[in-house]
Design a protein around this nucleic acid. Structure first.
Lengths: 131, 131
DNA sequence: TATACTGTATATATAAATATATACACATAA
DNA sequence: TTATGTGTATATATTTATATATACAGTATA
């Protein structure tokens, strides 16, 4: 199986982390349903032009986070997960990002109205022509 | 001048960055108006129990970001800045945090209603009993 | 000038993050 | 069994982040 992943050398972010983030998004976004086999660490490494150890690390981290399951000799697969758990994961990720944004706002003395305004602006920008 | 800064050893975040963040917040939040002298790198180092090089680095970064100005032999001061520029800086920081949160949401397929709900929840949580 | 403050520059130590090579072990199918 | 696919473990290289000591240079004031 071939999955759409792009890594950038220029990006300061390390390879293993770029890949991790992208695979997480594919899984949580439903593009890779539970049970889907991921490319082998060697295939992925060859594809990305990095070492096997790096792809291995990526998969280890994803496994630690509960997104995938690796079985020695067989391969690596998107982990079976009830839709409720998947939903919770999605919620959590986005919730935390908003929490952080609002903390930022509070720290510099913004009122909730200030933040509502900013939120609305960005929502509009992001959901015009295709939302 | 003594400014209220707390660094934590347990925090994974490096000292220079903890201090940087806190001073930025004090400036942008208006607690340290333009022209205010900051403690000397030595005084601050002694206060925090770290080396002068570390506090020096903190100030260099803050200067690079345009928040303070250091003059050899005289000291380090909060940079003169028109209130509009200050306001823009505040806006930018918070704006970017929200942008990121909303991108996260989009990536996992959240609608704008989904995100509004999350936003409202967190706003309520943060502005009840003291907002 | 002498003293005691300021910031600056150079060289260095240490730890953590990142990436690797290579040999090993399990699974499966010819 | 043999060949070839999968993941695993150990040891290691390299770079970046973090923090430091110490000697230097500008500023102000007694």
């Amino acid at each position: 199986m071939r999955i759409p992943i792009q890594v950038s050398e220029e990006n300061r972010e390390p390879i293993y982390h770029q890949v991790e983030t992208q695979i997480k998004a594919l899984i949580v976004g439903g593009k890779l349903p539970p049970g889907t086999p991921l490319p082998s660490i060697r295939a992925l490494a060859s594809d990305l032009g990095c070492s096997v150890i790096t792809t291995r690390r990526t998969y280890q981290n994803l496994q630690a986070d509960g997104f995938i399951q690796t079985i020695q000799g067989k391969g690596t697969f998107v982990r079976e997960m009830e839709s409720t758990r998947m939903e919770k994961t999605k919620q959590k990720v986005v919730y935390e990002a908003f929490e952080k944004a609002i903390q930022q706002g509070k720290q510099v003395g913004f009122s909730k109205e200030d933040m509502k305004a900013i939120f609305s602006t960005i929502i509009k920008k992001n959901f015009t022509n295709g939302g």
